[in-house]
Design a protein around this nucleic acid. Structure first.
Length: 206
DNA sequence: CTGACGATTCACT
DNA sequence: GTGAATCGTCAGC
């Protein structure tokens, strides 16, 4: 297991990275509590030419500025005034690509995830949405613009191979405003059977 | 300064 | 299936 290197994030093909992140393990260390899970669902946001992206048309604001930085850092923002959503900024400087982390399979610190969400059961509903990812990982706006090479938030390659057949793609969620780009198949998730398989492979490594 | 609204979730019915 | 919660961001005045 090793942290994904900076070069991983600097690829300009954000769709490729969104697919590749499936099966990787995302870690957070918040308030000295370690939590982690297998990334099972992502969405690609393809920069200035993507009407669903906050950076569409080259829009630069205080909020979106972080997307224009070099890939390998986080982009966290508040959605609906209620939930924080976690993104991975990718590509080179001035190419505002990002991947939204939408789903996770809990691996480490499940007890703390339950505490943070007020749940009692670690069922499917614990981490099956982008707002829940941040809640279970203890991520909020203070985690905006931080490096994925650091010790607060990082992603590891578990060296488990994800087949193309394991990946399902659909249009993205909640981007109806994006006109023709709303139909792009930029949402990716792992099939239920492949998550099961990956989880078993991980257990056998321990 | 103001107002509209969103890359959502949950508790209801 | 429907609606409320809830607030930072951004465009427009």
């Amino acid at each position: 297991m090793s942290k994904l290197p900076l070069s991983y994030y600097n690829d300009n093909d954000v769709v490729s990275i969104a697919r590749s992140l499936l099966g990787k393990i995302i870690y957070s260390n918040t308030n000295n509590i370690l939590t982690a899970g297998i990334i099972t669902e992502t969405e690609a946001y393809n920069g200035v030419c993507d009407k669903a992206s906050h950076a569409y048309g080259g829009r630069r604001t205080k909020r979106t500025e972080v997307m224009y930085k070099q890939g390998g850092i986080s982009y966290v923002y508040l959605c609906y005034g209620v939930h924080y959503l976690l993104n991975v900024v990718t590509a080179d400087v001035d190419t505002p690509h990002a991947v939204l982390i939408r789903g996770m399979y809990p691996l480490v610190g499940i007890k703390h995830m339950l505490e943070r969400t007020g749940k009692t059961m670690a069922d499917l509903s614990l981490t099956n949405g982008p707002g829940k990812i941040t809640k279970t990982l203890g991520v909020d706006i203070t985690h905006n613009n931080i490096s994925y090479q650091g010790n607060k938030l990082w992603i590891e390659d578990n060296e488990i191979y994800v087949n193309n057949e394991d990946i399902v793609s659909t249009p993205r969620i909640g981007v109806d405003y994006a006109e023709e780009d709303a139909d792009l198949p930029y949402r990716f998730f792992l099939s239920k059977t492949s998550i099961k398989r990956i989880y078993q492979e991980l257990n056998s490594l321990l």
